[in-house]
């Protein structure tokens, strides 16, 4: 990995993702810090990245590296953590049962990924599917359910469903720009994760060498 990528590209990319993912667009734009649960999920995701070899922390922080190189590595890791927490917070619905279900969904998926120990490529594919599904759920499915300008039939169905679930399904309507912003943020995040320094392949055989 080049010094340019490690010192400039990765930190600035991840910080930009953290900034954009934290923006809640409503009648006014509010920058919201990640929830505590998002921090837990981010820790799990980074652990999964390390175990799969998609992220080699020793290539960012190591005693053999110079002080400035370690400072760059620490900045990149800090930015990765902030961006991960904000992306997961952005993809989680804000209220009600969807919030609970998506949190459980993400927690179980990440736990499963941690235990399964996939390799780098499989992990990146799995991450794309997980983030993509959460994006679709929040910004397409739930957004259409919560759309106040929907058709009369859909509004009746939603009203019935909402009554049956004590009003815990519908979300505050999101502006269309929120979905586009989330899509580009997730795409940027996946690209940035793919750019992280990966573990070097090494032979870990226990076979005895022939004499």
């Amino acid at each position: 990995m080049t010094a340019l990528r490690e010192a400039v590209v990765l930190p600035l990319l991840f910080l930009t993702i953290a900034l954009v993912a934290g923006a809640h667009i409503d009648t006014r734009v509010a920058l919201v810090p990640p929830s505590l649960f998002s921090l837990v999920l981010a820790t799990m995701l980074i652990a999964a990245l390390v175990r799969s070899g998609a992220l080699a922390p020793d290539r960012l922080l190591h005693a053999s590296r110079s002080t400035i190189a370690n400072a760059n590595g620490a900045a990149a890791l800090f930015a990765l953590f902030a961006a991960t927490a904000q992306v997961l917070a952005m993809l989680t619905p804000r209220t009600g049962l969807p919030l609970l279900f998506v949190q459980i969904f993400l927690f179980v998926l990440l736990l499963n990924t941690l235990v399964a120990m996939p390799d780098r490529v499989r992990l990146l594919r799995s991450l794309a599917v997980t983030l993509g599904s959460a994006l679709l759920l929040k910004f397409v499915v739930l957004a259409s359910v919560s759309d106040p300008a929907g058709s009369r039939v859909s509004r009746v169905l939603v009203a019935l469903f909402d009554a049956a679930t004590f009003g815990s399904i519908t979300q505050n309507p999101e502006p269309p720009s929120a979905g586009y912003l989330a899509f580009f943020t997730v795409a940027m995040y996946l690209i940035a994760v793919a750019l992280l320094p990966q573990a070097r392949p090494y032979a870990h055989t226990t076979e005895l060498a022939p004499r």
Partner: peptide, 27 residues
Amino acid sequence: PVVRSAGLVATIGYAAAIAWLYVTQPQ
């Protein structure tokens, strides 16, 4: 070293600016 130093300064400055945006919430 020049790239690394410049990158570190830019990162710290950018992170500080983002933290400021979060605190002040300009509209």
